Amino acid sequence: KSAVKALFDYKAQREDELTFTKSAIIQNVEKQDGGWWRGDYGGKKQLWFPSNYVEEMI
Results as ranks from 00 to 15, higher is better:
50 P>C: 09
44 K>F: 13
5 K>H: 07
27 Q>D: 11
26 I>G: 00
38 R>W: 01
45 K>P: 03
57 M>R: 07
37 W>L: 04
7 L>V: 11
2 S>N: 14
24 A>Q: 05
2 S>H: 14
7 L>F: 06
22 K>A: 13
14 R>Q: 10
43 G>C: 10
7 L>Q: 07
44 K>R: 11
45 K>R: 12
25 I>H: 05
46 Q>N: 11
22 K>S: 09
14 R>W: 08
26 I>E: 01
34 G>R: 06
57 M>V: 14
26 I>T: 02
3 A>V: 15
7 L>E: 04
56 E>Q: 09
53 Y>P: 01
31 K>R: 12
2 S>L: 15
37 W>I: 00
21 T>V: 12
21 T>M: 12
4 V>K: 03
44 K>T: 06
23 S>R: 08
15 E>R: 09
58 I>V: 14
13 Q>Y: 06
49 F>G: 01
26 I>D: 01
5 K>F: 09
25 I>F: 07
8 F>P: 01
32 Q>S: 14
21 T>A: 11
4 V>F: 12
11 K>H: 12
18 L>C: 05
49 F>I: 02
14 R>G: 11
52 N>K: 10
42 G>Q: 10
30 E>I: 15
40 D>V: 00
41 Y>S: 05
46 Q>M: 07
13 Q>L: 10
24 A>N: 07
1 K>Q: 13
14 R>Y: 09
58 I>R: 12
53 Y>W: 07
7 L>Y: 04
9 D>I: 02
31 K>E: 05
34 G>H: 08
21 T>E: 14
44 K>W: 09
57 M>S: 09
37 W>S: 05
31 K>M: 11
17 E>K: 00
45 K>Y: 14
49 F>M: 02
45 K>N: 09
53 Y>R: 07
37 W>N: 02
30 E>P: 00
26 I>K: 01
15 E>K: 11
32 Q>T: 14
48 W>Y: 10
17 E>M: 04
3 A>Y: 14
47 L>V: 05
43 G>N: 10
27 Q>N: 13
18 L>E: 02
25 I>Y: 07
8 F>K: 14
4 V>N: 04
47 L>E: 04
10 Y>D: 02
1 K>E: 10
29 V>T: 02
42 G>T: 04
51 S>L: 06
37 W>F: 05
35 G>V: 08
50 P>Y: 03
28 N>V: 04
41 Y>L: 09
27 Q>S: 12
24 A>R: 03
43 G>L: 08
4 V>D: 01
5 K>C: 15
40 D>C: 06
30 E>G: 09
31 K>C: 07
6 A>G: 05
9 D>P: 10
10 Y>T: 03
51 S>T: 08
16 D>E: 11
31 K>Q: 08
18 L>G: 00
24 A>E: 06
12 A>F: 02
21 T>S: 13
27 Q>A: 10
55 E>W: 07
20 F>D: 00
31 K>W: 05
17 E>G: 04
54 V>M: 03
31 K>F: 09
4 V>E: 03
38 R>Q: 08
35 G>N: 08
47 L>N: 08
38 R>I: 08
37 W>Q: 02
20 F>I: 03
33 D>R: 10
40 D>N: 05
52 N>H: 13
24 A>W: 03
55 E>I: 13
6 A>L: 03
25 I>E: 06
43 G>H: 08
49 F>C: 04
5 K>Q: 10
2 S>P: 14
47 L>K: 11
43 G>E: 10
51 S>C: 14
15 E>L: 11
32 Q>V: 15
7 L>I: 13
49 F>T: 01
37 W>D: 03
15 E>Y: 10
19 T>S: 14
33 D>Q: 12
32 Q>H: 15
49 F>S: 01
37 W>M: 06
45 K>F: 15
16 D>K: 05
48 W>L: 13
8 F>T: 08
12 A>P: 04
21 T>P: 15
51 S>D: 05
58 I>A: 13
36 W>L: 04
22 K>Q: 11
40 D>W: 03
11 K>N: 14
19 T>E: 09
25 I>P: 00
39 G>Q: 00
4 V>L: 06
23 S>N: 15
33 D>M: 11
2 S>W: 12
54 V>K: 02
